[in-house]
């Protein structure tokens, strides 16, 4: 059978969702941000939430998220996305509000905001992209940088005596009573991406059911910051990041005791 006979609209099984705009993303080749943007756009489209969804963009590489997903967005000051989302969701409780943050934004300058938003059990979904580095500013050490990881500010690797210990944000917020669903996922392979999509879907559902804060961490690569090819970066992540950041659900209020706030 000729390829031209297969390529017909009725045979299409996978394609770009209409919620993703035609703008070419500014991300580096192979960046995990693109995959997670796509998953969020697909889910918002599939669940018919385009009119209801309000995203809060961070400062960092994902600062231009509003250029790529065709929903309402609000840009927040560095690290303050959960605080801005709190305001939005309290005024518009019928909306689906989510923040999309990187590790430099969420785990460092925004650590206070995220912990208190989760502790208050604000009815938002937090998408946390953790690549262990400040990608946008040149690959400096972040709070999430794993031990012995080489960055531009720790050229000999992160030394815990000098630089302190890496911070596991997901484990931290899982202990707070306001969170309903806390999970850690990745997006380096097709099965991982599909699994990540299911986790994000569950987070969105929990928010729609007003169960409290849902927190989805995606362990990601930053191949430019890590100075590797995208394929090599994925391998490095599987080898070095996954032992420290094990994947899976940390907390699921459906299985544990139910949490209800706001």
């Amino acid at each position: 059978m000729d390829v031209k006979e297969i390529i017909k609209p009725e045979n299409q099984v996978y394609g770009k969702t209409e919620l993703l705009t035609d703008n070419v993303m500014h991300y580096c080749p192979g960046c995990t941000h693109g995959v997670v943007h796509k998953l969020m756009a697909e889910l918002i489209d599939e669940m018919g939430l385009q009119e209801k969804a309000i995203g809060v963009a961070p400062v960092g590489c994902a600062v231009f998220a509003y250029n790529y997903i065709d929903i309402d967005w609000q840009e927040a000051a560095h690290g303050r996305a959960p605080a801005v989302a709190t305001g939005i969701v309290r005024i518009n409780p019928e909306k689906f509000v989510f923040t999309y943050q990187g590790d430099g934004d969420l785990a460092s300058i925004g650590a206070a905001e995220i912990i208190h938003a989760c502790n208050r059990g604000e009815n938002i979904l937090v998408v946390f992209i953790n690549n262990g580095i400040y990608g946008m500013t040149g690959g400096q050490m972040a709070p999430t940088t794993i031990e012995r990881m080489v960055t531009s500010t720790t050229p000999c690797g992160r030394d815990t005596e000098l630089n302190g210990y890496p911070l596991k944000m997901t484990d931290l917020v899982a202990q707070l009573p306001g969170t309903s669903y806390v999970t850690r996922q990745s997006a380096q392979s097709a099965p991982a991406v599909r699994k990540c999509k299911r986790a994000l879907k569950k987070g969105i559902k929990n928010v729609l059911d007003k169960k409290g804060t849902s927190f989805v961490e995606v362990v990601s690569t930053c191949n430019s910051g890590w100075k590797m090819t995208p394929v090599k970066a994925n391998e490095w992540m599987e080898e070095n990041m996954f032992p420290f950041y094990p994947l899976g659900d940390m907390k699921d209020s459906e299985k544990d005791k139910p949490v209800s706030n706001n």
């Binding site: 297969i6 993303m25 991300y27």
Partner: peptide, 18 residues
């Protein structure tokens, strides 16, 4: 199988199947 489309960060792959 659409694995290529699923992992593509720039959503530039459309998959057809018969």
């Amino acid at each position: 199988c659409a694995n290529c489309g699923v992992v593509c960060p720039d959503t530039c792959i459309t998959v057809y199947r018969v």
